[in-house]
Design a protein around this nucleic acid. Sequence first.
DNA 1: CTCGCGCACTAAACCGCTCCAGTTCTCGTG
DNA 2: CACGAGAACTGGAGCGGTTTAGTGCGCGAG
Lengths: 344, 344
Amino acid sequence: MKRRTINDIAERAGVSKSAVSFALNGKPGVSPATRERILATAEALGWRPSSAARALSGARANVVGLVLARNPSLLAAEPYFVRLIAGMETELRTEQTGLLLKMVGEEPQRELEIYRRWWSQRQVDGVVLLDLRVNDHRADLVAELGLPAVLLGRLRGSNLPSVWVDTRPAMDAAVGHLADLGHRRVARVRGMRAFIHTRERDTAYRAAARTFGMESAVIVDADYTGEQGAKATRALLDSPDAPSAIIFDNDVMAVSAIGAAHDLGIRIPDELSIIAWDDSPLCELPRPALTAMRMDIDGLGAAAVRILREAIDGGPTTSIRFGTWELVERASTGRPDESRRRRS
Amino acid sequence: MKRRTINDIAERAGVSKSAVSFALNGKPGVSPATRERILATAEALGWRPSSAARALSGARANVVGLVLARNPSLLAAEPYFVRLIAGMETELRTEQTGLLLKMVGEEPQRELEIYRRWWSQRQVDGVVLLDLRVNDHRADLVAELGLPAVLLGRLRGSNLPSVWVDTRPAMDAAVGHLADLGHRRVARVRGMRAFIHTRERDTAYRAAARTFGMESAVIVDADYTGEQGAKATRALLDSPDAPSAIIFDNDVMAVSAIGAAHDLGIRIPDELSIIAWDDSPLCELPRPALTAMRMDIDGLGAAAVRILREAIDGGPTTSIRFGTWELVERASTGRPDESRRRRS
DNA sequence: CTCGCGCACTAAACCGCTCCAGTTCTCGTG
DNA sequence: CACGAGAACTGGAGCGGTTTAGTGCGCGAG
């Protein structure tokens, strides 16, 4: 089968290809009647613009790029990324824009190289930058190249557009929920500290703990994997002043914690309450099912694309704050049982 | 920052741009010395090929396309797809090829439209077709268009290259494992019957049940979601001749089944053994952890890309059979407790 | 009636690369 | 020593669009 070009349309409509171009792009220079005729023949021929040709003549590639710089097995287990992509897609589909996906391990150098290549090849019109770190070189690079980009999160010192989640209200709600239930000693198992959003949660968590007058509010390091989630849980439960509730930075670690608690013979939620973060379908799988802080990840992805489109179109740099949250109460949180603390 | 073109290189190296093109693409027509010089200047200038220009002049776009035609929330929970993509990436990265991802719901029409667009726009060099159905229109379409494609699975009547999993040995091993443990009444909760691979598993499962002389070997329909997995499990356990072991078509349903069994007060593995299919990190999360049939999904993705590359290069149509498997025994399978069958 | 302006439309350059058709030069051969 | 072959390299068309610089023409104003 042969591809149709605007030359075919021009020939069949009896006009020049410039006229066709004008008509198809809604630009002035053709009469309404001619425009109509051209559009009709284009439709009849089943013509579709060649993105290669368009990209070459300086227009859009109609593709945006996304690099997932995480360990592949983590990506597989973690629903976050697919949800984000799904959210992006809802917004991309309306404008027939594609998503170029690249998975790399945690190799910053390779990631930078990819943006370089995408830019110089004109393969993408813009990129979404995930998992920001303090002093993130990617922001500098895209700014230098002039590659439109949107940050998922806030980065000090950068004036790139961004979509960021204000964790504070959600964290207040999570800790507040535990406080309401009577918990005085809480803990939080966090993801990689290199990420800015992790640090923002640190701050929000500490502030919330203060607000609700927690006796103790420790933080334990982990890396979002089930393995480390379980390990952190065991460490916390083994400590002399074990918390009565733990908040996890993602769902996977929380699910894993249920297993770990089970192994230790610790009853949930009587002896230990657990709150997961994000709320994916995963949270409904364990027993007890996980109480989770639901975040609008799809919405985040969609917003990122909207902002990115503005940036690509050369609009003013805007940023969007996401402060919405919803605490989905399931069975993993409850009043602490004072007769607990078997180990000490 | 300005983009470098082969004209820049040609000028600086004092040759024509044709020579540059030859040198950069490893084609004959330039002396080793000149080639070396050209490569050096290209390197010095930090030149990268414009994929748009390449695609336009009939060469590769260096992008392959993948459409995920599934419900987004299922995609998020199901590790399969990300693992497959990760596998594809390992193979793609070596050749600097990108992956254009499209997520659509289960709307066959939209999916076909996407291939059409990709083809007419020359956006992708080829595509990987997932989740084949009997009488799959996608195969016909790509064949008609001449869009290189590789099938993930077997499709009767199509001579497109394919990478397919031979389920029989794995199914034999799974059912055999249950037989060894003393199970006589098994069941299987399957995914969507519209998929060919589901039907192939049906056949393999029935054959295995026969081989090992199972008393009963029912099949229950589900849709890969945790919800339906739990529902199917409850239905099976409620039936008068409940099975003592269930094999699930994916991990998510199996994890969910553990929860459902727990809710019904059924002990695993004493009263019910469970085998999950695929084996992702998910299987280690529940208690008891899931015995799972591990499939080499990464390898599948990588193989698909290799075959696709051959197809793009116009090589002969080859197909690869995947027959490897590994039964990872965890705690969800065991000898059936004869004192069970509380409900009947 | 003529001039000039604006609208509808065309011709052609251009984007960066590939590749075919030449051109030049070298070298072996009869 | 002329000739042909082949290697090394150049020029330029073409890919499918966009965009700029025209061109022709109708029509209102003077």
